[in-house]
Write a protein that binds this DNA or RNA. Structure first.
Lengths: 338, 338
DNA sequence: TTGTATGCGTTATCAA
DNA sequence: TTGATAACGCATACAA
């Protein structure tokens, strides 16, 4: 409970209206008065009362949401988090404009960005492509329209903040788990979604880096792509193990896990050690069956909740987060702490 | 944004005052009118506007906090969480009455409970003792004064909710990690704080249960107490290993970790596998040094934040949580995801 | 350039 | 038993 604008007005010897104009930089205030009010506000640590603000702000806030969630169960929890944060601001009238999409098509995402240009703010899982960055920068135009990148970040873009996975650390964590579980002695097949996806590459980098430095006796037998697809995953994994029967461990750093795991289990001579990412229904099942030993989760609910909260706090109360990089924890899940 | 009390008054053909009296059960409303208003409120899903409420509720809320935090670094994060939740309700005037204590003295805690009897609500890490339960029940008197148990629960007490660790699951998780790290082959020394503390016993139960069912080749070499004390821990661990040189793994399910770990490392013939609980500064250091392989954290910040939020949501908005048991996640931390 | 009046949704007080 | 009114802190339209 800080000082109120009314008390501030008394202290400054002006009316509440003038205080409002001064502190919200609406102009039309004599410079000397402006300065006096700002000084007093600082001195008495004036913070506008949110309840008063909520009561008077009756225009609805339109938020654009662009996510590649179709066919991707990972986003179910993200969406729950987004809705939960919105519910925390039920005193305000907030409208979410959903644009859900499958896959990564630059042209389609450009069109969606066009659609949300008139909104007050945006949350997006961007494709890391120069055209997307340019279009976003055009909409942002000096923070008038804040954009939060969610789960994927983008280069050369004036986005307000990134909320999502620290992919490099995720890979490191997986690498260490793999080293611990195999006693530093394994021939590992790494299965990535696509060598074109930045996050997947960063995970691989972190994974391989830790194994090299902390578990130098391990070997990477190969790195294969599965395009996040189960059938493709089964085929490629089976082929790789057929070509190198010494493989006794696998790291999946993206989707298409189930197909690959079953292929590996049936092909390997002895039960392989398998580490994956995320905690989808499919992976939970594999963990319960004992086929996957551990997975590195990235708090999807937290990602949704936090991205929405950061955006609304800025739009409603001009709150700027301490850092523009907000990383989810990389949580290790095993059978008993799912 | 739901319907307002004013609109409700119009629909019911009465004044706002009557609606307020009816919905808040202040009495003095004709039964037929009371019923009509309640029906309309349900039909139109009336939810009082929190901002309006905040603006008018100007009496300060006194919250009692009784925690055994002195000399226990685990509670630093808990306290940060408590403060953070309070800050989320900055529109209200809230006063925290701290009672911090060292150790578990029933008489002292009884006195502290007396001190907070006049407050609006309480958050406490109770000693699980009949006298404490009775004194708390006396203060609670039919939910007029809600009490949240934090980190420790208590039997036969009408506390409003428990926010804290699921100790049994914590032990299970540690057991599984131990099994995975030792390939199901280890002679384990279990170090507990006290066999009188319920949480410690539940952790041991979970730990031993998982090892028995999932890793039957492991053996528990012994269970010793260290009273959460480093010196005692060093002495007892050294003695146990001197008496059984086959010990090659340790599980610490409470405090006094640092002393015990150094003793174990210097006594064991080869480097032991060590799993601990929590993520204090001391344990972080041990993990970085590679002496502790993994620890099972219990989200202390979340515990503080959630307990305060649940209490305030009830006192201010009559929000009742879905369950009266709110468990922290048992998170596995290793060197790279600290 | 500055001041005043009004209203947002709720609770509390006083009058009827 | 019920109604009318003021007050909370803020933004805004309008008046000066």
């Amino acid at each position: 409970m800080s000082i109120t604008s009314k008390q501030l007005a008394e202290l400054a010897g002006v009316s509440r209206g003038t205080v409002d104009r001064a502190l919200n930089h609406r102009g039309g205030v004599r410079p000397s008065v402006q300065q006096r009010i700002e000084e007093l506000a600082r001195k008495y640590n004036y913070r506008p009362n949110r309840a008063g603000k909520a009561l008077v702000m009756r225009d609805t806030l339109n938020i654009g949401i662009i996510i590649n969630s179709v066919g991707n169960p990972f986003f179910d929890e993200v969406k729950r988090g987004l809705e939960a944060a919105k519910a925390d601001y039920s005193d305000f009238s907030i409208n979410l404009n959903w644009h859900e999409e499958k896959g990564y098509d630059v042209e389609r995402q450009l069109k969606q960005i066009e659609d949300i240009s008139e909104m007050s703010g945006t949350i997006i899982t961007p494709i890391n492509h120069p055209d997307i960055a340019e279009r976003l920068n055009h909409i942002i135009q000096g923070k008038k329209h804040p954009v939060i990148t969610l789960n994927n970040d983008i280069n050369n873009c004036a986005r307000f903040a990134y909320v999502g996975c620290n992919y490099f650390q995720s890979g490191q964590t997986a690498g260490q788990i793999m080293g611990l579980l195999t006693n530093g002695n394994a021939r590992i097949l790494a299965v990535t979604g696509s060598k074109k996806v930045l996050g997947h590459n960063q995970r691989l980098e972190g994974f391989i880096g830790v194994l090299k430095s902390d578990y130098p006796k391990t070997r990477i037998a190969g790195i294969i792509e599965n395009n996040d697809d189960d059938d493709r995953s089964a085929y490629e994994v089976a082929r790789a193990i057929a070509g190198d029967s010494s493989i006794d461990a696998l790291y999946f750093c993206a989707g298409g896990v189930t197909g690959g795991v079953y292929a590996a289990v049936s092909q390997c001579r002895k039960k392989p050690v398998i580490v994956t990412c995320d905690l989808t229904e499919g992976i939970q099942k594999l963990i319960r069956e004992g086929l996957v030993q551990a997975t590195v989760d990235q708090q999807p609910y937290w990602q949704g909740y936090t991205s929405m909260k950061v955006l609304l706090d800025y739009l409603l109360f001009h709150v700027v987060p301490e850092s523009d990089l907000m990383y989810a924890r990389n949580e290790i899940r095993v059978k008993y702490n799912i």
